[in-house]
């Protein structure tokens, strides 16, 4: 890692902005590509496989181990998106060999994931697999998710842990499932594999203001015709820390209200592709 950094050419010489002529019409945002000298030299190389994205905020106790496990078992690039952590998350992740994208302000889990997806697109990856930094998701489940998307069976594979969650949480999910018609059991799982089409959709400005990564993201994907499949996985217990969305009645209340309104504004827009649960 350090050797690579030393070999990189100085910013002032190497970086030149290339103004992309493509505009994302309804937002008037010009998409710009960043090219370095090294990049131009290796132009034309074929696209790369997949990258693992880990959004993290104050997870220095577990992120190092998670990164190491993924790197050793899968030999793939791991990107940790740091959501303005106050602890040693960034240093720990770097030491473990991850690429760190440090956010200058807190964007939340979805904002962090979108950053990772935009990075993955910029680097030419075909697939992005998101997972949590707290050790709940195991690297051993990644190949299964990867397989579902790379075989073309679905655009998005969700690693579903079907037995988790308290009664109120499961009731909330059932309610949202009914409201939106999304046949997804584990709506809030952050363990997902996104194929290239999904990545492109999720990198757009439309997707930027979604506040939570679960329903809003799935609804947007479905509205764009993506196929979503669930793959049952084993989830380990959270070693340290607690759920942020369900941390207090206030945050749960806000979450339910917010998601409820989102559902109401999107129901009725059911499109072609039904989602299905992968049979083992």
């Amino acid at each position: 890692m350090e050797a690579e950094a030393a070999a990189a050419t100085p910013v002032s010489e190497a970086v030149s902005w290339v103004a992309g002529s493509r505009k994302i019409a309804h937002f008037g945002e010009r998409v710009v590509g960043l090219r370095t000298k090294q990049d131009t030299a290796t132009a034309g190389r074929e696209r790369r496989g997949f990258v693992v994205l880990i959004p993290a905020r104050n997870e220095d106790a577990t992120v190092g181990e998670v990164v190491r496990q993924v790197r050793t078992s899968l030999r793939t690039e791991v990107v940790v998106i740091d959501d303005l952590s106050e602890d040693a998350t960034v240093a720990t992740a770097r030491d473990a060999g991850a690429v760190v994208l440090p956010l200058a302000a807190r964007l939340g889990a979805w904002g962090a994931i979108q950053t990772g997806i935009r990075y993955a697109l910029a680097c030419g990856y075909e697939m992005a697999i998101t997972m949590d930094a707290d050790g709940q998701h195991g690297a051993e489940a990644i190949p299964a998710l990867h397989e579902v998307v790379s075989s073309g069976e679905a655009d998005v594979a969700i690693g579903a842990f079907l037995a988790r969650g308290s009664r109120p949480r499961r009731l909330a999910w059932a309610f949202f499932r009914y409201l939106t018609g999304l046949g997804v059991e584990d709506l809030t799982s952050g363990f997902r594999a996104y194929g290239r089409r999904a990545m492109v959709t999720l990198a757009t400005p439309d997707a930027t203001l979604l506040e939570y990564q679960d329903l809003g993201v799935l609804l947007l994907l479905r509205a764009n015709g993506m196929k979503i499949t669930e793959v049952p996985v084993q989830m380990r217990d959270r070693v340290v820390g607690h759920s942020r969305v369900y941390s207090s009645w206030l945050t749960v209340g806000y979450y339910l209200l917010h998601t409820g309104v989102l559902c109401l504004s999107k129901t009725g827009r059911r499109l072609a592709s039904p989602s299905s649960v992968a049979q083992d």
Binding site: M1, E4, A5, A8, V11, G20, R22, V31, V32, G33, L34, R35, T36, Q38, D39, T40, T42, A43, G44, R45, R47, R48, E77, V99, V100, R118, Y119, L121, A122, C123, G124, A203
Partner: peptide, 12 residues
């Protein structure tokens, strides 16, 4: 900046 991947970057 710290880690330049060896591929031509795409628009994002």
């Amino acid at each position: 900046l710290r880690h330049t991947p060896p591929v031509e970057p795409e628009e994002y």
